[in-house]
């Protein structure tokens, strides 16, 4: 659905330079800190900005050849932008109906009703959570094949975040051959949603892994200095010095569990993973 190859975009003090792929039937998460390059990459894919080099394929086509009809197959959420705040929920429906031939007005009204969105209310007068929900509803109600969602849960409390994630799960359950590319700086959002995770830092992809592999194989090893000195480090990705000794990030927890039964091997979780990938040193 999306293939990004060596895309490069530079700003003063920042360079995006990365490759990634989103396959049909998957939810792919892009995770990284604020300013890591997530939005820049999304903007490149959506042609809001123009990369200096590299290639981007969207729906099997070079992005330069994407037509307005192709764009009807994509639903988008940008975290800091949406339909003009001066318009009402009802107005948004009229606008979307005229943009998308497959726009489903009934589904839009029903989803807005379920989300407690008053049709007469201006978008600028909605709460942050309501605005975020409305953006996702706008992206979902024209039967898109592909969703590109930049920080759809940004600034929301845990309940509002879960409601949005539920909308996305329902979308994939109803359309198993579609795909979602979603970014977030909140790891727990992506941890339980995605099939595939890319981690971005300083404009570069520093990790790409299947979500199941991340859950099952990646782990944190807590070892004393002497243990660290003697242990096999062939599956250690990053290390960090601590008061008690060293913590190591491994991509093969079972290897260490089997080989060193006494070793403390803890499930890493994406937060820890990010922390180690960004803050840790090479073994």
């Amino acid at each position: 659905m999306i293939k990004v190859t060596n895309v490069r975009k530079t700003y003063t003090g920042f360079e995006l330079n990365c490759s990634m792929e989103l396959r049909k039937g998957t939810i792919t998460g892009l995770i990284g800190r604020n300013g890591a390059g997530k939005s820049t990459l999304f903007k490149c894919i959506l042609q809001l900005i123009y990369p200096e080099s590299g290639e981007i394929k969207l729906l099997g086509k070079d992005i330069k050849d994407i037509t307005e009809a192709d764009r009807c197959r994509i639903g988008t959420v940008m975290s800091d932008s949406g339909i003009s705040g001066y318009l009402t929920i009802e107005d948004a429906e009229k606008i979307l109906k005229n943009f998308y031939p497959k726009f489903d007005g009934k589904a839009y009204q029903e989803m807005c009703r379920q989300a407690g969105l008053d049709p007469k209310k201006k978008i600028k007068d909605l709460s942050t959570g309501m605005k975020a929900r409305h953006r996702v509803i706008c992206a979902l109600t024209h039967d898109p094949d592909l969703l590109i969602l930049d920080e759809p849960t940004s600034g929301l409390d845990v309940i509002a975040r879960n409601e949005i994630l539920e909308l996305l799960r329902n979308y994939m359950a109803a359309n198993p051959d579609h795909a979602i590319l979603v970014s977030s700086h909140i790891s727990s959002d992506l941890e339980n949603l995605c099939d595939d995770i890319y981690m971005i830092e300083d404009g570069k992809i520093i990790l790409h892994e299947d979500a199941d592999v991340l859950n099952d194989s990646y782990a944190i090893l807590k070892v004393r200095d002497d243990e660290y000195r003697d242990m096999d480090k062939s599956h250690v990705l990053k290390v960090r010095k601590e008061m008690f000794g060293v913590i190591c990030l491994t991509d093969d927890a079972n290897y260490y569990r089997t080989r060193y039964p006494e070793m403390i091997v803890e499930k890493s979780g994406i937060d820890h993973l990010i922390e180690m990938m960004i803050g840790g040193e090479n073994a």
Binding site: K43, L46, Q47, L48, E68, A69, R71, C72, I74, T76, M78, D80, S81, G82, I83, S84, G85, F99, Y100, I148
Partner: peptide, 11 residues
């Protein structure tokens, strides 16, 4: 409010 950013993601 960054409206263009949303507008140009539309068809």
């Amino acid at each position: 409010d960054n409206g263009y950013r949303f507008l140009f993601t539309l068809p």
